[in-house]
Design a protein around this nucleic acid. Sequence first.
DNA 1: AACATCTTGTACCTATCGGTACAGGGCTAG
DNA 2: CTAGCCCTGTACCGATAGGTACAAGATGTT
Lengths: 197, 197
Amino acid sequence: MKAKRALTDRASAISALAEAFREHGFEGATLATLSKATGLGKGSLYNFFPGGKEEMMDAVLENIDGWFANAIFAPLEQTLNPAAAITAMFDDVTAYFHSGRRVCVVGSLGLNSAGDAFAVKVKGYFARWIAALARCLEAGKVPPALAASLAEEAVSGIQGAIVLARALDEEASFLRIVQRLRSSLIDAISRHGWHPS
Amino acid sequence: MKAKRALTDRASAISALAEAFREHGFEGATLATLSKATGLGKGSLYNFFPGGKEEMMDAVLENIDGWFANAIFAPLEQTLNPAAAITAMFDDVTAYFHSGRRVCVVGSLGLNSAGDAFAVKVKGYFARWIAALARCLEAGKVPPALAASLAEEAVSGIQGAIVLARALDEEASFLRIVQRLRSSLIDAISRHGWHPS
DNA sequence: AACATCTTGTACCTATCGGTACAGGGCTAG
DNA sequence: CTAGCCCTGTACCGATAGGTACAAGATGTT
């Protein structure tokens, strides 16, 4: 049984790869960069990811997808306390994106043509996020149409907050924007008749 | 007098360069790309922009800055009819960004480390935009603190809308988000006592 | 200990990167 | 008409890009 070690090494490389792609983008991250970031030589890198950079990014996206599914989407689905789930989501997202200092790899992939190869994954990531958030709002008795609007607005708003915070180099703006978004969603829930037991 | 022809050729190249940078990003746009996009050979390109890619991007940013100053900021400053100015801004922005299909070069520059060299220009672009919008809202009798919040939210929201629309490949979401942002600003103005004559 | 299997560093490959050099072409001014 | 300057295409440069080949080293199994 060798797969064990191989898998853990590969798995531990992925987060380093993610960080490198975050900082330099897909095109900007060279194999030398990735090698340095992971501590793995080119040989090992191509052993784990025979498909090269593209497979590395694919693995990173899958990893991110898994993380979001666990940490963000799943809590949103358990509809016991929608308001709490939403508050938790914003807290987790704020931590995950380092208050806007950290870029969203998925979002930035969609911005230039280098990410065309990953278009379906990028699309799915955002679609699932919005859908999960909308369902959570509906569980909070928010009417479906409004829930969809608010969910879209929140996810889009988080992305915008990242862009702005990076551009201004000022995480305070990220925190302000995200807080306003959170209030807007929580208000909608409490306005439509749902209250924690 | 040769400067005339040189200047117009350089100027006409800039918009093509902007489009290329938009599509491929700074790192992703190679000299071959830029040459094809402008129709200029490498020789001409380096004749007009001796500093290479970096000077080209600088010129593009300056050009964008000028366009925004004219088309966006200036109308916001003439405070005769703030609500109309804001509506015009959203219309112009929607057209400029092709309903979210077109990326904001400035915003995407801030996302990866390739844009570090342009950090001050990027920061200035967003700071000026937010400031102009906030002043316009104040002219509409919106209290300064709220005006600052709303302006930040709007600019950030537009960036988020671009990211989301590109990711979902769906300009409808851009239009929805932008429309909500516009309504939010217009409502704030009409709620605080300013009404067109 | 011997084995097959997995892992790794190194050397090497071709293509292309951003950038330079420069000779000639074309335009304009006088 | 001609002298000068700006413009442009081409050839070229070293560096580095992503990727492959493979021999040697670890590793775990029996």
